[in-house]
Amino acid sequence: MKRLSVLISVLILAGLHFSLTAEGVGEAPQNLSGEPETIQVAGLKGPTSIGMLPLFKNRPSFAGGIQAEYRVVQEPQIMLARIMSGEVDIAAVPINLAAVLYNKGVPYRFGAVTGDGLLYVVSSRKDISSMEDLRGRTIYCIAQGSTPEFILRYALDRSGIDPARDVTIDFRFDQVSITPQLVAGKIDLAVLPEPFVSIVSAKNPEVQPVIDLQKVWARTSGTGETYPITAVLVKAELMESKPEAVEAFFSEYSDAIDWVIAHPKETGLLAEEFMDMPAGIIALAVPRLNLHFQRPVEARPRVDELYRVLHSFAPASVGGSIPSDEFYE
C-alpha cells in the first residue's frame, strides 16, 4: 500500500485533473483480413499528454493500415489499472512510474522521452533570481516525498545550500490549495510545475517564475542537460509483433511535439477541445512545458541519472532499483 501511495502521488504530480475524459473516436482502417486493427494509446490528463494533441486531432494511420485510438485518462488510478491489465498498448506516464512498473514485472518497455522537467521557483519578490537568494527563506513545495521535493533538495544541495539547515521547506499546501495562497499574496515563494505556474501568473502578474530548476539541474549535475519527466511506454508484445507501426507512431509523435512547440495558441485550443483545459493558460504554458522527444538510446544517460537521484532519496519512487538494459530494448 505504501508503494501504491507513492505511485498515486507521483501520478497526481504529472498533470491537471479536470472532470472530463476525452477519447479518440472514428473508424479504424481495415487490414488485409477485413478486420479493423487499432493501437490503444492513453495519456494522463495534463502536461504529460500535451505533445500528443495533434495526433488526437489528425489520427494518422500507421504501417499496415493500423490506426490508433487515443484516450485521455482522467484519473491516475484508472491509468494505473489500464496499464496493469494490459488494456493500453502505448501510454504516456511520469518517468519514474515507468521504472516502478518495470520493476513490478509489468510487460512494457521504454519507448521515448516526450518531455523534460517543468518545475519552477515562483515568487512575487523582486530580490530572488538565483539559488543563493533562497538561503534563509521559507520555500513552499507541493507533494512531500515525491519528485518536486527531490528535485528541489537536489538543486539546493548542488548549489551549496543545505536543505535541512539553510532553508525551511514547507509542505502544508497541495497543488490546488497553494494557488489561491500565491494569488492572494499570502505566501511569496513556492515551487510549482507548469501549467500551475501560468495559472498563478495569469491571476496575479506579480507572481512570476524566478528560477528554472531545469537549468539549475543542467548546470549543477555536470551533464549540461536537464532531467526528463515524461516517458512513453509500449507493450512489449506490440514492439515485437508490429515494430513498423510502433516506429511510425513515434515518428508522428515527434512531429506532433514539434508542431505544439511552434503553435502554442493552437495547442491551447486543442487542449480545450480534447482535455477540457483552459486554452489561454495552456498557450501561455507551452514554452515552459519543455516538450522534448528522444528515443531510448539517446535518452538513457539522462534517464538513468534521474533514476539514480530519485533512488538516493526514496528507492520506492523508482520501484526499488534502477531498470536494467531490458527496459530500453
Rank of each mutant, 00 (worst) to 15 (best):
S198N: 12
K203S: 15
N204R: 11
N204F: 13
P205M: 09
P205D: 12
P205C: 06
P205S: 14
Q208V: 15
V210I: 14
V210G: 08
V210L: 08
V210S: 09
V210T: 08
D212E: 12
D212H: 13
L213F: 10
L213E: 09
L213A: 07
L213V: 10
K215P: 01
V216D: 02
W217N: 05
W217K: 01
R219W: 04
R219C: 00
T220W: 00
G222K: 07
G222W: 01
T223M: 13
E225H: 11
E225A: 12
Y227C: 09
I229N: 13
T230P: 00
V232T: 13
V234M: 05
A236N: 12
E237Y: 00
E237W: 00
E237F: 01
L238D: 04
L238H: 05
M239P: 02
M239T: 12
P243E: 05
P243F: 06
P243K: 06
E244F: 06
A245Y: 01
A245M: 09
A245T: 06
E247F: 00
A248K: 10
A248N: 12
S251E: 15
S251I: 00
Y253N: 05
D255F: 00
D255H: 10
A256P: 10
A256L: 10
I257S: 03
I257W: 05
I261R: 14
I261Q: 12
P264D: 09
P264F: 06
K265H: 09
K265S: 11
T267S: 09
G268L: 01
L269A: 15
L270A: 08
A271E: 03
E272C: 03
E272M: 10
F274P: 03
M275D: 11
M275A: 15
M277P: 01
G280H: 08
I281Y: 03
A283F: 11
A283C: 08
A285C: 11
V286A: 08
R288K: 15
L291Y: 13
H292V: 02
F293R: 02
R295P: 05
R295T: 13
R295D: 07
R295L: 15
P296M: 11
V297F: 04
E298D: 14
